[in-house]
């Protein structure tokens, strides 16, 4: 597609997204459909996580299969300090203060991403997929084994994070925070994509051997992207913990990582709004299919298989192909 045309279509899509995600839930909520606001909140949080994963998967071309772990880390960074503030113990982190929770969520995510990234980024391809998966599952089992925080049964968050100006107990405020966060993160990924850093990542994705040949050590850029990606997902976890107020290891199971990956790919990796569109498709599918049958995973799985077999480049990619003029002729 013509770059100028592509820019305008992305700009239009951005306007539509910004307006839609603000207006629809607000109208629904004010007209008394509070249930829909919950759906939208979940959607936006998942979209943030998908944007986070997209930093490494779409931009960097590295298939990380352990990103649910960061969501879990973010959520437990809310749950654990709140638990200790209520029941005592671990004075160092016990708190209801949102900044403590947030700081803990981002810091722990960054550290976990750094340590696992240092090791896993030395490998490529199938090894990288399996190693990220294993590290994700390690986090899952670690939380399961912590009986203090409910282990398998999960942990109820009695009090949401306390933040100045924003009351997270109000569904509308919570949605507002999620919505603004998503826009900031989308804008942030947009800037990154076009920066020198983003260009380097895309080069490494396209042809790593060539990057080496022009004198670039890709490892440190990929590690940075991996950490950024983990931190964004950790932030999504912080929001998710405050939204559901019930957290359990189940939210970091590797199949959750698969779902986030599904969103990124189906929406179209490496496009600006692809992950958000993917999250919308996921939520709609989950909602519609589960209306019809409790066995909604079956059509969902079939759809996933079919989309891999027949729909390359995701929905966004397919739409782009529809609007794409024939390949440039040699002049």
């Amino acid at each position: 597609m013509n770059p100028a045309l592509k820019n305008t279509s992305t700009a239009w899509l951005s306007v539509v997204m910004v307006v839609l995600l603000a207006a629809v839930p607000y109208v629904l909520y004010v007209s008394g459909n509070t249930f829909w606001l919950d759906i939208f909140t979940r959607l936006v949080i998942l979209a943030i996580a998908a944007c986070g994963l997209n930093l490494i998967l779409g931009l960097g071309g590295l298939v990380s299969f352990g990103h649910a772990a960061y969501i879990g880390i973010g959520a437990y960074a809310v749950g654990i300090p709140a638990y200790h503030e209520t029941y005592g113990g671990l004075d160092a982190i016990a708190s209801y203060n949102g900044f403590v929770h947030l700081g803990l969520a981002l810091l722990t995510s960054a550290v976990f991403a750094f340590i696992t990234g240092v090791i896993s980024l030395r490998t490529r391809g199938v090894n990288f997929i399996m190693i990220t998966m294993a590290f994700g599952q390690m986090m899952f089992y670690a939380i399961v084994s912590l009986e203090t925080y409910g282990g398998d049964d999960g942990l109820t968050i009695d009090l949401r994070s306390e933040l100045p100006l924003i009351n997270l107990d109000s569904p509308l405020s919570l949605y507002g925070l999620c919505y603004v966060s998503l826009l900031v993160i989308v804008f942030f990924t947009y800037r990154i994509r076009h920066s020198r850093f983003g260009l380097t990542l895309q080069g490494a994705k396209s042809n790593e051997e060539r990057m080496n040949a022009i004198g670039v050590n890709c490892y440190k850029y990929q590690l940075t992207a991996f950490v950024l990606s983990g931190v964004v997902c950790g932030y999504a976890g912080f929001l998710l913990g405050n939204f559901t107020t019930f957290i359990s290891p189940e939210m970091m199971d590797w199949t959750r990582s698969g779902e986030i990956m599904f969103m990124v790919i189906l929406g179209g990796a490496a496009t600006l709004w692809g992950p958000v569109i993917g999250a919308i498709i996921f939520i709609v599918l989950e909602f519609v299919l589960s209306e019809y049958t409790v066995y909604w995973h079956l059509p969902f799985g079939l759809l996933l298989i079919f989309s891999v077999l027949f729909l390359r480049g995701g929905v966004t990619g397919a739409l782009h192909r529809l609007g794409k003029p024939a390949v440039r002729s040699q002049s």
Partner: peptide
Amino acid sequence: HLDHVLATFGLILCIDTMVHI
């Protein structure tokens, strides 16, 4: 490999649900 991963992930969902049914 990404396509392998996604498609076989879809297979898991299908097989698990079929077993459930």
